[in-house]
Structures are given as C-alpha cells and as structure tokens.
Computed example of a mutant assay.
Amino acid sequence: MLRLIGFIIILLSLSGCSSVFDKHVEYEVQQPDSYPILRAIGYAPIAPQPGGSAQQKSIMAMKASKIEAYRELAEQVYGQQLQGNTSLANAIASDDVLQAKVQGVIRGARVTRSYVVGDSYATELELDMKLVYDLYVTQTKPRKIKKVTYY
C-alpha cells in the first residue's frame, strides 16, 4: 500500500500543473517607437576597371560603387569584425596584421543617386528601417504575450 501511495505521488509530481490547468495565450506584435533611415555612399575608380571601352569601364565602376555602398550599409547594420595579430621577435614587432570583415544581408535598400565624381563613380543608397521591420515581420511574425487565460 505504501508503494502505491508513493507511486501516485511521483506520478502527480511528474505531471505538474499542466494536466490540471489548460490555457489560451493571446499574442500581440510589438513595434519600435521610431525607424531611422540609414544612408551610405560607395565609390569606385573608373580607369582601372576591366573593359575594352570607356563605357564598359564606366558600367563596371557603377556596379563596383553599388557593391561598396552595400558594404557600407552592412557595416552600419551589423558592424565590422576586426581581427588583429602582432608578432614579436627579440621584443621588436616583426609583423602587424589587422583584418576587417563585414557579413550580413541587406534587404529593402534603394539607390537614391548614381553619379561621376572626377575619375570615380559614386552610388548613394538609402535603407528605411521601417521597410526592413515590415519585411522582418512578414517573415518571422515576432510576438509578445498579450493575455493568458487559464481554464
């Protein structure tokens, strides 16, 4: 009899309150108070670009400046990963290396201006964080608990 009571107590403690109470949870989406607009400019030289004609070099510089502007936006959104290494030989610095890395996904950016500056091409990008938030919400559906009802 004592074993049976002990077994029943163990079963009740393992089941916890989840079998006693059933619940309904209501969620609400949380929005930030403000949405900044990030801007970035990318530059690329025209003359050293690959291509047989001036027009081809200009197009390649246009593409390169756009990629540089996206890199600049990624730095603003995700930051830069820096890695440094210094070697010493007889208490004298023999090798000093610093590497930077940017990695991320930029969605919703738009080109606001593209223009020539001397022998370089410049591209200006704009990233409205309201649009980024809307894209994020449609994909992930972030939620906050609004109300819990137990019955």
Rank of each mutant, 00 (worst) to 15 (best):
Y78N: 05
Y78H: 05
Y78Q: 04
Y78C: 07
Y78D: 06
G79H: 12
G79T: 13
G79R: 08
G79L: 12
G79Q: 06
Q80W: 07
Q80T: 15
Q80S: 13
Q80C: 11
Q80K: 11
Q80M: 15
Q80H: 09
Q80P: 12
Q81W: 08
Q81T: 14
Q81V: 14
Q81S: 14
Q81A: 14
Q81Y: 11
Q81N: 13
L82M: 14
L82H: 13
L82F: 15
Q83F: 14
Q83A: 13
Q83N: 15
G84P: 02
G84R: 02
G84Q: 03
G84C: 01
G84E: 05
N85H: 10
N85F: 04
T86M: 05
T86P: 03
T86R: 04
T86L: 02
T86K: 03
T86A: 02
S87D: 07
S87I: 06
S87P: 07
S87L: 07
S87W: 03
S87C: 07
S87Q: 11
S87H: 09
L88Y: 09
L88T: 08
L88R: 05
L88F: 06
L88S: 08
L88V: 08
L88P: 06
L88D: 04
A89V: 09
A89W: 05
A89C: 06
A89D: 11
A89Q: 12
A89H: 10
A89F: 07
A89S: 11
N90K: 03
N90Y: 02
N90V: 01
N90H: 02
A91K: 13
A91H: 11
A91S: 14
A91R: 10
I92Q: 15
I92N: 15
I92S: 15
I92V: 15
A93G: 09
A93L: 06
A93W: 06
A93M: 08
S94M: 05
S94V: 06
S94L: 03
S94H: 04
S94P: 06
S94W: 04
S94F: 03
S94Y: 04
D95A: 13
D96W: 13
D96P: 12
D96F: 14
D96C: 14
V97W: 00
V97Q: 00
V97I: 01
L98I: 05
L98N: 02
L98R: 02
L98W: 03
L98P: 03
L98T: 06
Q99A: 01
Q99K: 01
Q99R: 00
A100E: 00
A100P: 00
A100R: 00
A100T: 02
A100M: 00
A100S: 01
A100D: 01
K101F: 12
K101G: 07
K101H: 10
K101Q: 10
K101D: 11
V102S: 04
V102I: 08
Q103N: 13
Q103D: 14
Q103Y: 11
Q103C: 07
Q103G: 12
G104E: 03
G104W: 01
V105Q: 12
V105R: 08
V105H: 10
V105F: 09
V105N: 12
I106P: 10
I106N: 10
I106Y: 08
I106L: 09
I106Q: 08
I106K: 06
I106M: 09
I106R: 06
R107L: 07
R107K: 06
R107G: 08
R107A: 08
G108F: 05
G108C: 08
G108K: 09
G108V: 12
G108N: 13
G108W: 13
A109C: 11
A109R: 09
A109I: 11
A109N: 12
A109E: 14
A109V: 09
A109G: 12
